[in-house]
Design a binder for these strands. Structure first.
Length: 169
DNA sequence: AGCAGGTTTAGCG
DNA sequence: CGCTAAACCTGCT
């Protein structure tokens, strides 16, 4: 299993990516030092690194945080130790397109359950945020919760909509 | 069994 | 409107 850390500028934090054959987790790690003094893998290092899943997803994530419209459809994820229901919720969540938003209610509808809170619970266990875009699932009136903190969720949503607008205009 | 959770809806002031 | 209570389903103890 390998780990790589990239800097997510729009979020003001870093992202730690773990995986072997498939991606296992992504994790937000706060900046402890001032920008510029932090020791991060350089772009070149990341880009030229060959083709295990971690490197591949790192590349995609760097593009994503650079403002490109990236869906992580090609990247394979491993959902270990989750129930069938939770996997179903997360797989469905993966289908939400860039910039699009769904309410917990709507997502529950797609899954085919009335257990809206159960859907929220499943999302809370998402081991691979960003790649599995659980931040695109919001409350009907409001934003809803986020394991990484609601502020992060807001930033992500703003970031994506801004990039969509950019693309239009 | 009982409880809590990234919600939703209805009911009431 | 804003607040509270109850209902929904799933997972953990």
């Amino acid at each position: 299993m390998r780990t790589e850390v990239i800097y997510a500028k729009p979020l003001g934090c870093c992202l730690k990516i773990k995986g072997g054959e498939k991606i296992v987790s992504t994790e937000f790690v706060p900046l402890k030092h001032k920008l510029g003094k932090i020791d991060l893998p350089s772009w070149e290092h990341t880009v030229h690194r060959s083709c295990d899943s971690v490197a591949a997803v790192s590349r995609e994530l760097i593009r994503y945080f650079g403002g490109e419209i990236v869906d992580f459809s090609s990247c394979e994820v491993k959902l270990g130790s989750l129930t069938i229901f939770e996997k179903r919720v997360l797989e469905k969540t993966r289908e939400i397109r860039y910039g699009q938003r769904l309410t917990y209610l709507e997502l529950a509808g797609l899954i085919g359950t009335n257990g809206i809170r159960a859907v929220g619970n499943a999302l809370a266990k998402n081991p691979i945020p960003i790649v599995i875009p659980c931040h695109r699932v919001v409350a009907k009136n409001g934003i809803g919760g986020y394991s990484g903190g609601v502020e992060l969720k807001k930033k992500l949503l703003r970031f994506e909509t801004a990039n969509m607008q950019m693309l239009k205009g």
